[in-house]
Write a protein that binds this DNA or RNA. Structure first.
Lengths: 187, 187
DNA sequence: ACCTGAACACCGTTCAAGT
DNA sequence: ACCTGAACACCGTTCAAGT
């Protein structure tokens, strides 16, 4: 039950942050969602900065795991690359939530340093994975793979941001399709 | 002096919102920046929702004007299209600020309806302008221009979001360059 | 017409007190 | 070890009171 509270807080805080951002997170609603008092949240996470950093760290850890699983279960690396946007699509399917990296990235100006650091790691692992897969699928030379990986990450994040503000998953799919026909993403 | 206070509030609130979002806006800091008391802000804008909506409306009005000016002063429409991302670049040059439409778009879940409406207009006028210019420069058929316009808007917004979270304008330029070589944006 | 101080409920935080 | 209530300073809001 003790560990469960901490895990439940991390999970509920992640969902809240993907919906309302770090600024939109608040201890009393979070505590209520888990069934404890707000002062109990401070026992597990002394400050909001600690909570935010823990949530962001867990988020990129989970993402790193999902990315490796995606690559492992794909017969060819092109297939993993093609499925990559599905990770962002799943956030939209889950109550129209935004990628935590995008939301906290937007808020980064006012974020505690510990949180900002974790958010940057999220971006780094996405770009590193894309770069690796682009090279493995030999659709790009190693020299251009890094630039291309960053552009894909930025464009997919942008598509999710726009589609989310309209609560329109079909728009996300259409944006991705246009990225493909234009050549930013491999067909 | 009276009108100046209202205008000064709108301007200061826009800057604050582009840095910290709607949730990061607060009446006391805003009032202090303009030199009045926080209760005076409520005289001009009864609620935070009113203030947010006024800021967002002014923002898309200014953007609409800038877009028309850009098109008017461009000898060819391709030229205006090429210069379009400069509008987003200018926000980064101005204290690393994010497009208000992107920030409030991310926050849209918790935004008052009046604010959300204005934010959507911002997206609409951007896409409509891009679509018009794409057709005029005959780089796209009318049938595909709309899809392409939305993809460009999403990708440029995403590039700004990523570059801003790194406080790296050069990254914005590199992302845009990659969009061009990949074919999403005309060379 | 425009501005202000005081008061209210809310939020992050602390801390002494519980079990 | 884990949880809680009470108290603090902060924020959006209201309102009576100023000019």
């Amino acid at each position: 039950m003790n560990l469960n509270v901490r895990e439940a807080l991390l999970e509920a805080a992640r969902k809240a942050a993907q919906s309302h951002g770090y600024n939109g997170l608040n201890f009393r609603d979070l505590a209520a969602a888990v069934g404890v008092k707000s002062s109990s949240v401070h026992y597990h996470f002394p400050s909001k900065a600690d909570l935010g950093a823990a949530v962001a760290r867990r988020y990129w850890e989970d993402t790193a795991q999902a990315l490796e699983a995606l690559l492992a279960e794909s017969p060819q690396p092109q297939r993993a690359l093609h499925e990559y946007p599905r990770i962002f699509r799943k956030s939209l399917e889950d109550q129209n939530r935004l990628c935590l990296g995008s939301f906290m990235g937007a808020e980064s100006e006012g974020l505690p340093d510990a949180v900002k650091t974790e958010v940057q790691v999220f971006a780094d692992i996405n770009v590193a994975w894309l770069e690796k897969v682009l090279v493995a699928s030999s659709s790009d030379s190693p020299a251009t793979a890094h630039q291309r990986a960053r552009a894909i990450f930025a464009a997919v994040a942008g598509a999710q941001l726009i589609a989310r503000s309209r609560s329109d998953i079909a728009l996300f799919d259409e944006l991705l399709a246009t990225y493909r026909v234009s050549g930013l993403l491999p067909a």
